[in-house]
């Protein structure tokens, strides 16, 4: 058994909403090993976003513990959490969240700015990551000059640039059309094959099927944790294109 990249112990998150006490997570125990590709599923309100925020060290749990590579990160200050995120976590968001009027290269370099990486080193690593996601030719483009899929690739490059222990993707295909979504999933599978640990939140079972393990949340509890043979995104993409071609010629 490989060592856990991230583990949670009896994780709980409570909110106070308009005088009402809300128990968004009710004791979640999970162990995610290095090199796993995990999909987190569940309807809205199931607690999957709360879980995601806690895994990403964007928030602190009310009860229970989170161990990131064996270290307890559940009681850290805002500044300490920021440093942990900078060093160990890479985020990919549904809305890409790129800085407007800033080149792809500068967007990818952003996390390195906050870790005081020397500039030439930052440029070298950002360039590598952009090559990895297939955007070596678009480094000087602003987000407005890129398609949705390309913007999400820039965001993925940004998530990879600090060589994080964990890649967290929150509905990364939610704002994309099906074909582009499949392309992004293909990219995630490639990264997984290269040994990256990926946690992906989605409400689409089709997308979750590309991961090797599916966690399902309902009402703040983990109700299912199953490992499956993942579908191949490259194959799915090919099928999708053939189908479309058939429709056009028909």
């Amino acid at each position: 058994m490989t060592t856990a990249v991230i583990a949670t112990l009896a994780l709980e998150k409570h909110y106070q909403m308009g005088g009402q006490h809300l128990r968004a997570l009710k004791g979640v125990d999970i162990n995610i090993a290095g090199g796993e590709f995990v999909a987190v599923m569940g309807p809205s309100g199931s607690g999957k976003s709360t879980f995601m925020n806690l895994l990403g060290c964007l928030d602190s749990p009310s009860l229970g513990r989170i161990l990131l590579q064996g270290d307890d990160v559940s009681r850290l200050s805002a500044a300490q959490l920021a440093r942990v995120r900078n060093k160990y976590i890479g985020f990919v968001f549904q809305q890409f969240n790129l800085l407007p009027r800033t080149t792809a290269l500068d967007n990818v370099m952003l996390p390195l700015l906050y870790s005081n990486t020397p500039k030439h080193e930052a440029i070298r690593r950002a360039t590598e990551c952009l090559q990895l996601v297939g955007l070596a030719q678009r480094m000087d483009h602003h987000p407005a000059q890129l398609s949705g899929g390309q913007q999400q690739r820039v965001a993925i490059a940004r998530a990879l640039v600090n060589q994080p222990a964990l890649l967290l993707a929150d509905e990364p295909t939610g704002a994309l059309d099906s074909e582009t979504g499949l392309e992004i999933m293909q990219l995630f599978q490639q990264l997984h094959q290269q040994g990256k640990t990926i946690v992906l939140v989605t409400h689409e079972p089709d997308i979750a099927a590309f991961a090797g393990r599916q966690l399902t949340f309902r009402d703040g509890e983990l109700i299912a944790d199953k490992k499956t043979q993942p579908q191949n995104a490259a194959v799915a993409l090919q099928q999708f294109r053939q189908q479309r071609l058939a429709q056009v010629s028909a």
Binding site: L58, A82, R83, N86, K87, Q95, L110
Partner: peptide, 13 residues
């Protein structure tokens, strides 16, 4: 949102 992103990628308050 920009502030949120900067925080997410490691900007301390």
């Amino acid at each position: 949102r920009e502030i949120g992103l900067r925080m997410a990628v490691g900007a301390e308050p």
